[in-house]
Simulated scan of single mutants.
Amino acid sequence: MEVVRDERGGATVVLDGHPQSYVDTDDPLLLVFEYVQHLALVLEALRPDPAPLRVTHVGGAGMTLARWIHRVHPGSPQIVLEPDTALTELVRRELPLPRGHRIRVRPQTGEDGIAALRDASADVVVVDAFDRGRVPGTLAGQRWAREVARVLAPGGLLLVNTADRPGLHWVARLGATLQTHLPYVGQLVLREVDKGKRFGNVVLVCSSAPLDDVTLTRSAARAAFPTRWRPAAEVAAATRRAGVQPFGEVGEPSPAPPEVGRLGLR
């Protein structure tokens, strides 16, 4: 476990030989990895008001997105659920959080941490948790979906960073599972991943209220990487046609990536 600095002034958190986060403490708006840009894109599109947001992060690492939210939505109370205390201590020591932040790190798993939160206590929940490059099955089943939906305020957003092989069958099953509790589930995805050209990340955007497809489509078209927004209605129709079934109480881990360590970067 180490922090590797580069000539740009930023740093990469490396765990077990694999990069976990890229952080520039002087410029928290610098987001290097495409899926982190996608998470920020959704918040910029759907929550443009700079007012504080109540945000819970499942998975912390370098807390790149939490730093971005602190800059874009000053005063936001944020909870980070990160069970790896050694990792958190390293990040605090080498990549200190900005002054005046309201980011609180709890040494808990996503399941335990979410279960301890009050009903409707979060405007946004961001799930970005990987174990050896795979989303754990405990963060994919009906029990998990119920708990996350309970914690979200009415009309709140659940953003989930996932990863899948071509065909995106696992992502479809996760989306179907979440849809049983949060009816509107759209996808933000790189075009080459959407076309089945390679294994890659998909960001699921979920809510109890309809999503602004027009704004998200326009924002995706302006993304630095070729990106497509798949509206909830399109995703739901494709799921029905394919006969995709939701996971049970506990889900299945996402497929292993070709090269563990390339995904789950924060």
Rank of each mutant, 00 (worst) to 15 (best):
G243R: 11
A145F: 05
A51V: 02
R262I: 03
A256D: 13
R47T: 05
D24E: 04
G100E: 05
G196H: 04
T25C: 08
A153Y: 01
Y22R: 08
G137K: 01
P246T: 12
H181E: 15
H70R: 03
G113M: 00
L158M: 11
G75F: 03
R165V: 13
R104T: 05
G264M: 01
R54L: 03
A223V: 00
R92S: 08
A236V: 08
F247Y: 14
L41N: 13
L216D: 11
L87E: 06
E2W: 06
D26E: 06
A256E: 15
R150L: 07
E82P: 12
S254H: 11
P166D: 12
W144I: 09
D164M: 03
R240T: 15
R134P: 09
V36Y: 05
V193Q: 10
P50H: 06
E89M: 06
G248T: 09
V80T: 09
M63H: 07
A224H: 10
R104V: 02
P77R: 04
V189T: 07
L190S: 11
R99H: 08
P231K: 08
G75Y: 01
A51L: 11
A40G: 13
R218N: 10
W170M: 08
D212V: 03
D119Q: 09
Y184H: 15
A51N: 10
D213E: 09
V214L: 15
P74W: 01
K195Q: 13
V126A: 11
R102V: 00
L190T: 06
A242G: 11
D213A: 08
N161T: 13
H181D: 05
P107L: 02
D16S: 08
T88W: 12
L188Q: 10
E249S: 10
A40M: 10
V36P: 04
Q108V: 00
G110N: 00
S219F: 11
L39M: 10
A61K: 10
G141P: 07
T88A: 15
L41T: 14
R71S: 04
I79K: 09
V126K: 10
A238N: 04
G155E: 13
R262W: 14
L152K: 10
L46M: 12
I114T: 02
D84Y: 01
W68K: 04
V32L: 14
A238Q: 09
S208L: 06
R104G: 04
T138D: 15
A237F: 11
V214C: 06
D119C: 05
V105N: 07
L263A: 15
A223L: 04
F225R: 10
R106H: 10
